[in-house]
Design a protein around this nucleic acid. Structure first.
Length: 892
RNA sequence: GGGUGUUUAGCUCAGUUGGUUAGAGCGCUUGCCUCACAUGCAAGAGGUCACAGGUUCAAGUCCUGUAACGCCCACCA
């Protein structure tokens, strides 16, 4: 126990406690200790990354869950680590290399990969250090990297299993190609962006009897004129009368003068463009399929870097966009451009470098996804894994249901090299774990390994079990798999979450986590995504510097409604800072009153000495425990944060501390001791609830106040339980709560009157409250009309008989008396619900009765007495109905 | 094109199974450096709950439609 400084100093306090927690090993989970596991794996940030505000949000949420569950006594692991981020990291190192005037090809594969490792050693830990500054209670002893030995082993194992099962294949196919990164991309890595492009209408001359006709053309529309160099046909719809006669005829490809057949294909939509489509199998996925259907060999006219190759004839060597310009110029000169229209369409962009993606034919590796997706979809439908908020279930299901094969090969050097080997002697090809010495078929030792590396996500999708030592069986894997919760943003549901579910089921036989909490995206105050290029990003470390890590964490939680996007600006962080200051000062107040208070508080209360206010704050505390816990269970972090804020600031500080001053500065020693006990009880409990949100401040106060011994930590203090039994024991009944709440209302009204009537704050007024009909008598210098209207606005009843003038101090004018009915308050909601049920029942009867009476067959068949009797009872019912309705109206 | 989210105070947002007077923070107005806290205290003003219908005794909340903005997915060249 030490005296609290006047000013809280997070800059020294926060790192102090974080280091201590780490030294003491509080973050580490030990499988041999057994118990109920609670495991979260971190979405591994890229080694190229620096902590941005989205990470801060994501990791604060995870830390809150983990710290809460740790206090609940679970065997907790939050497994941290980083992702090697293939393309992104390679780009960074290549850029550095370029500054030296070199390319990766100049230094060779091995040296380049060595350089990336060097870079990783030097800079790859940045984000980890930043997570520590945030207060993340990760199990750092378990830190993993997607390229470390264990994970690489898992990657090879998975590749071989899928390969041997026939789920991995190699094929020539149109893939998304990034000409800047020189690699294929998966569909997910190609981001569609709307682009204001142009639709070029180009004339293809028709040949008759092998000769060009001067005036006959087929006009095709395209957004990428340069690809016409790779055309092998023009397609029309069989049902399109305009072109029927041309099917089977020959056209001449502009510029290159190649002969192109006119073919018929259902794919062509007669309503779009001109109804005639150029067929370019090497540069368009649809055309590729058409080419296959019609057995037309593709012509590739582009190099991997996006320049035109020798197939482009005179345009060889030009960049694709330069070529586009030139070809349009040339076509225009030749009179072959019919028109050019503006055309808005979606174009794929590389998710790493934002270059326009080129659909391009190349030899790539793929994973067959359907067999993996079906059980993963089923797991969600069964509820074995569920998304919060629920709406993401549908997004997940849609993707799983329409899944396409996953292109997993990348033409880069940084990553897990594809473990496929080729024997040139016998042309055998196989996948192997570890580096094989010779060909298993012919024994030849002259082997080649595939040059490509795997998609980064091919290691990420194994993260929940590869990090625990899979494929080797071990106690960690047995206890901590499957994990409990996954916390992430919606952007990587397809990249990562969905694929982890598939891998978990395929290789572990069970989903990797039970629930997936999808939080919102952090945006700036104009609704834009935070990004470096926009210059609108808020650097969490700057915020930590200016406010504190706890302030950052708490503020983020206050404004993050479940799954909603967060709009952020700098001043939002004042919430957390001010809250921290408030708490600090409340603690100082208590310490000043009685430094030994916490010790005495441990003794428990003497119920007979508790006042209504004491009981009230204890009841509110219990409500807060319950609400806060429930809200954490439901991922309602903003509500939980709000609960704590309202309790600590408004109940505890605004009311209870103020109330306590009367007692603590007073003479009644027994009451004084009791109030101090209550105060410490409430405060220390609130600190525990707040710990997951503001870990450093709460630990500092836990020790500063002396709630735990030097060797203890609030991190492992038990999570508070609602005080159901205790409240009854202490006499903290709902009536007491209602009474005190009502009195607060009265006091507020008194203050209002003071303020409105201009009574100086220093001037004492005489408020008297009588039991049962607590009456506030106010003497004020104001007229009755004013008071009446004020009271009316607050809908408080005013006794018609004012206090007799004789009873007033002569210097003041009596103006009114205020009544607050405490006994006999009607629970309008409960009563209404009761009546509503009655009404529904009556309504049902009534409707049936009406139906019967309106039914001709009933009237005809029934005896008149029966009808009369029926009519009578229907009227009675109606009356009853109206009565209930009137009652309801009165209450409403 | 399909899906999905948002629209509530000047601003940023809560508002759970429909139910008492629609809340919070910031900002604003007024008065206070009152012995924990001016990063504070007390009081106040400020709302046609996007719009139009509907269901209900009762709608910010449920249903139908409309509009604006946003996000995701998508091989009409």
């Amino acid at each position: 126990m030490k005296e609290l400084e006047k000013q809280y100093d997070p800059k020294t306090v926060e790192p102090y406690w974080y280091d201590r927690w780490q030294q003491k090993g509080y973050f580490h989970g030990d499988a041999s200790k057994g118990g109920t596991p609670y495991c979260i794996v971190i979405p591994p940030p890229n080694i190229t990354g620096i902590l941005h505000i989205g990470h801060a949000l994501n990791n604060t949420i995870q830390d809150i869950l983990v710290r809460w569950q740790r206090m609940e006594g679970k065997n907790t692991v939050w497994l941290p680590g980083t992702d090697h981020a293939g393309i992104a990291t390679q780009n960074v190192v290549e850029r550095a290399l370029r500054k030296e005037g070199k390319t990766r090809h100049d230094i060779g594969r091995e040296a380049f990969v060595g350089k990336v490792w060097d870079w990783k050693e030097e800079y790859g830990g940045t984000i980890i250090r930043q997570l520590k500054r945030l207060g993340a209670s990760c199990d750092w002893e378990r830190e993993r990297f997607t390229m470390d030995a264990g994970l690489s082993e898992a990657v090879e194992e998975v590749f071989c299993q899928l390969y041997d099962k026939g789920l991995i294949y190699r094929a020539n196919y149109i893939t998304n190609w990034c000409p800047r990164c020189h690699t294929a991309l998966s569909d997910e890595e190609s981001e569609h962006q709307d682009v204001a492009g142009k639709l070029y209408f180009i004339r293809y001359p028709v040949k008759r009897d092998g000769k060009l006709t001067a005036s006959e053309f087929v006009v095709v529309a395209t957004t990428r004129p340069e690809t016409l160099l790779g055309d092998v046909a023009v397609a029309v719809n069989l049902k399109d009368d305009r072109y029927k006669a041309l099917i089977g005829k020959t056209l001449s490809l502009p510029v290159l003068h190649r002969d192109l057949p006119v073919i018929a294909d259902d794919f062509v939509d007669p309503a779009f463009g001109t109804g005639a489509v150029k067929v370019t199998p090497a540069h368009d996925p649809n055309d590729f399929e058409m080419g296959q259907r019609h057995k037309l060999a593709p012509i590739n006219v582009m190099n991997p870097d996006g320049t035109m190759n020798e197939g482009a004839g005179p345009y060889a060597g030009l960049d694709r966009f330069e070529c586009r310009k030139r070809i349009v110029t040339d076509l225009t000169a030749a009179g072959l451009i019919e028109k050019i229209e503006a055309h808005q369409h979606a174009v794929g962009h590389c998710y790493r470098c934002d270059t326009v993606v080129e659909p391009r034919l190349s030899l790539q590796w793929f994973v067959k996804m359907k067999p993996l997706a079906e059980p993963a979809l089923q797991a969600m439908l069964d509820g074995r894994v569920r998304f919060v908020p629920e709406r993401w279930n549908k997004v997940y299901a849609d993707w799983m249901g329409n899944i396409r094969d996953w292109c997993i090969s990348r033409q880069i050097w940084w990553g897990h090299r594809i473990p496929v080997y080729y024997c040139d002697a016998c042309h055998h090809q196989w996948a192997a774990r570890g580096k094989p010495g010779h060909c298993p078929q012919c024994g030849d030792a002259n082997l080649r390994q595939d040059e490509d590396v795997l998609d980064t996500w091919f290691s990420s999708w194994l993260w929940p079990f590869s990090t625990f030592g899979w494929p080797h069986k071990n106690p960690d894997l047995a206890l901590y798999y499957p994990g409990h919760t996954l916390v992430t943003a919606s952007e990587i549901i397809f990249f990562w979450v969905a694929r982890m579910v598939m891998a978990g089921i395929e290789f572990m036989g069970e989903v990797p986590f039970r629930e997936v909490y999808i939080h919102g995206t952090v945006r700036d105050d104009k609704g834009r995504k935070m990004s470096k290029s926009l210059g609108n990003s808020i650097d969490p470390l700057t915020i930590i510097e200016e406010f504190s890590a706890d302030a950052l964490r708490y503020s983020l939680m206050m404004i993050t409604a479940t799954g909603q996007d967060v709009y952020l600006s700098n001043e939002k962080f004042e919430i957390g800072r001010n809250f921290g200051t408030k708490i600090w000062n409340a603690a100082r107040y208590m310490q000043m009153q009685d430094p030994a208070g916490p010790v005495r508080a441990a003794a428990g209360f003497d119920a007979a000495l508790l006042s209504a206010d004491d009981r009230h704050i204890l009841a509110k505390l219990s409500q807060t425990i319950e609400a806060c816990t429930e809200n954490l269970k439901r991922f309602r972090f903003n509500d939980a944060a709000q609960d704590l804020y309202a309790f600590i600031w408004h109940e505890f500080c605004d009311w209870y501390v103020e109330y306590s001053k009367d007692v603590l500065y007073g003479q009644d020693a027994a009451r004084r001791a009791e109030v101090i006990k209550v105060m410490h009880y409430a405060f220390s409990t609130a600190l525990r609830l707040l710990h997951p949100f503001m870990p450093h401040l709460t630990e500092e106060l836990w020790h500063g106040m002396g709630y735990g011994s030097e060797e203890e930590t609030i991190m492992l203090a038990p999570w508070p339980k609602p005080l159901t039994g205790e409240l009854a024991q202490w006499g903290a009944t709902p009536e007491v709560v209602q009474y005190v709440d009502a009195r607060h209302e009265l006091i507020r009204m008194g203050r209002m009157l003071r303020a409105d009537c201009g009574i100086a704050p220093g001037q004492k007024l005489d408020y008297s409250i009588k039991p049962n009909t607590p009456q506030l008598t106010v003497w004020l210098k104001a007229d009755t009309t004013t008071l009446m209207s004020m009271l009316k606005a607050k809908s408080v009843s005013v006794d018609a008989a004012f206090v007799p003038a004789a009873a007033m101090p002569s210097a003041l004018t009596p103006i009114g008396a205020l009544y607050m009915p405490i006994e006999g308050l009607i629970d309008v909601k409960a009563e209404s619900v009761k009546l509503t049920k009655q009404l529904e029942e009556l309504g049902g009867h009534l409707e049936r009765a009406n139906m019967k009476l309106n039914n001709p067959s009933f009237i005809n068949k029934a005896k008149p007495e029966v009808v009369a009797q029926f009519e009578k009872s229907r009227q009675e019912l109606q009356e009853k109905f109206n009565k209930v309705k009137r009652l309801l109206d009165m209450m409403g």
